[in-house]
Amino acid sequence: MKVLVVGASGLIGQHVVGRLRARGHAVTAVARTARDGVDRAVDATEATGVEFRALLAGHDGVVFAAGADDREVPRKPAYPVFQRGNVTPVVRLLTAAREEGLTRAAVLGSYYTYFHREHPGWRLAERHPYIRSRVEQAREGREAAGPDLPVAVLELPFVFGRAGDRLPNWAGAFDRWVRSRSPLVAPPGGSAVTSAAHVADEVVGALERASGEDVPVAAENLTWPEMIGRIAAAAGHPRPVRRLPGVVAEAALRLTGLVNGVRGRQSGIDPAHAGGLLLRDLFLPPSGTGSVADAIAETFPADRR
């Protein structure tokens, strides 16, 4: 295959490019900023359908590994920011892919769409602008692709790993915390986790199968205390993780929402309803076997200078 990867300079994008090439596929690497390993510098949020068609000509498949992150806190209303980052470029890209006759596509999404599908009573798309954008990304992207272009949507949880200087965008705050003298505390609940390498394997497998499925991706399921404890141990600062009562965590989230509101900002995950989401066990059926131990060690090396 010849595959165009949008977002190829990011943590997961670099792993996808490497895995595709290791499997013998040709790759065109596209990213917003020119750097080593990037074939074309293109801002996916600004690219027109005509520009996407020119990029996609002669390719068999496409991967969208870019987009707006749930930790962004834009000015109110937040949804247009997440729509611009996650929905609009995917619709344009997959429309162009259909018009160019591509035969397979993969979109890197969020595991929140899995919980939206499995637990409609949680009202996730209604309550959280970021989750709404991911739900609409999958639905509108597939509508744009049409019946002859299968689109696999990879539903990703916390992703550990490293690619050159690229780390998970949430890792810096955790790194500073576990290396500090501050106590480690964690609320109830937990999350599925995986590695960038595991995601890349799943993406390439979906492309090779020309899959049009939703693909939840998880290597392990960890409670928040387990995750924080393993991060601290990997960083060389192991210590106990104290339990934070759920009511305290929920109050802190609501306070964050009030502060954001005073500042005229809105979170992608609404703090007013975040306790009912983040304090749950956000676990997925594991895809494959293995652990994230090596990926955690890459993300939080004990010998960091």
Rank of each mutant, 00 (worst) to 15 (best):
E72Q: 14
Y79C: 02
T33I: 05
G85Q: 12
L56P: 00
P80C: 07
R75C: 07
V50D: 14
R35I: 00
V81A: 14
D43P: 06
R75L: 09
F82C: 07
A78F: 11
G58E: 08
E72L: 15
Q83P: 11
A31M: 06
G61E: 04
D36G: 14
L55C: 07
D60M: 04
V90D: 08
D43A: 11
V42M: 12
T45C: 08
G49I: 13
H59W: 02
D69P: 06
A31C: 08
V50P: 06
R40T: 03
A34E: 15
D36A: 15
R53Q: 10
Y79K: 02
G67T: 10
V81L: 13
E51K: 07
P89S: 06
F52V: 05
R84I: 03
A31G: 14
V50F: 12
E51Y: 04
V42L: 14
Q83W: 09
E46V: 15
V73M: 06
V81I: 03
N86M: 01
R75F: 13
D36R: 15
G85A: 14
A34Q: 15
A26Y: 03
Q83C: 10
V63K: 03
D39S: 06
D43K: 11
T45W: 00
V38R: 09
F64M: 11
P89Q: 03
V42F: 09
A65Q: 10
L55H: 01
A78E: 09
A41T: 05
V62N: 03
P74Q: 08
D36K: 14
Y79D: 04
V90A: 12
V63C: 04
G58I: 07
R32N: 12
E72P: 09
R84A: 12
G37I: 05
T48H: 08
A41Y: 00
T28D: 04
P80N: 08
P89K: 01
E46H: 10
G58Y: 06
P89L: 03
P80G: 05
R32W: 12
A66H: 11
A54P: 01
V30H: 01
R32E: 13
D36T: 15
A66I: 11
D43G: 10
L55E: 05
F64N: 13
G37F: 01
E72Y: 14
F52S: 00
G67Y: 10
G37S: 03
F52W: 11
T28N: 03
L55G: 01
V42G: 06
V73R: 13
